[in-house]
Design a protein around this nucleic acid. Structure first.
Lengths: 124, 124
DNA sequence: TGAACATATGAGTGGCTGTTCATACGATGC
DNA sequence: GCATCGTATGAACAGCCACTCATATGTTCA
């Protein structure tokens, strides 16, 4: 397993250098459910792509239509559309239709907060 | 290119349904440098994995050694060590040595903020 | 209805990434 | 020195993901 000497049943072993069992039990009880942790990872996965970051930044101030985003980023309409779907599935952007055009906007203030925190981290 | 009718030179075209050129110029000037956007994506990529999320959550309250984390998550010491390296390279965790044992901790309050914001987003 | 426009979507593909396995490194105690 | 413990690391491999290409959907206008 882990390699260091602990007692898997929760009792302290003579070989133990530090008390794992109790610590682990405590931390384990404080952790969110696996499902939540999975969802959290999935959410940040959506942030973890430069194209999607650019899209979200583009929508930071105002809504934009798909072709404007495509032009702004110098990328295919198809590529952008696929990414917008990903963003929408994660409920990070929302859209409205106006004739043939579909305008996308950030759906949430969390998006800005998360990006802002990340920005702070890398620029400090 | 994008498929919708805009004038690539920045002038309005008769076919244009909405004024891309000026909008794009404005937004483009407000965007962070490509390098920064790349770094932002790379940062969130680190958050975008369940194992690493679990590790960060485990370190939320207190530091832990590698083998304790391994045991907590029920994963190989090697797997955890690899992920800790990823986290350390992103400066999300820091470590200190105490004899043979190496303790890891969150290196930054941004980590907590980012996770907290993400948590809010998925649980609202 | 048909043509043009704006966007969406499915399949396919190359590149990235998380885990495993084996092994190396560093510290402690004998 | 040598054995052992705790951790790090390189190679290899499987699964995933962002883009491309072709095509479909939905809207407007004539």
């Amino acid at each position: 397993m882990s390699g260091c000497s602990y007692d898997a049943n929760g009792r302290e072993s003579d070989l133990m250098a530090h008390d794992h069992a109790q610590l682990i039990k405590n931390i384990k009880s404080g952790l969110p459910k696996d499902e939540v942790l999975q969802d959290l990872g999935d959410l940040f996965k959506v942030f973890g792509d430069t194209t999607r970051i650019k899209i979200m930044y583009a929508l930071y101030e105002d809504e934009m239509c798909v072709c404007a985003i495509s032009e702004l980023l110098g990328m295919t309409q198809s590529a952008i559309s696929h990414q917008l779907k990903t963003l929408k599935d994660a409920e990070l952007v929302a859209s409205r239709r106006e004739g043939k055009t579909i305008y996308y906007r950030l759906s949430d203030d969390h998006v800005k907060s998360i990006i802002a925190q990340g920005y702070e981290h890398i620029t400090e």
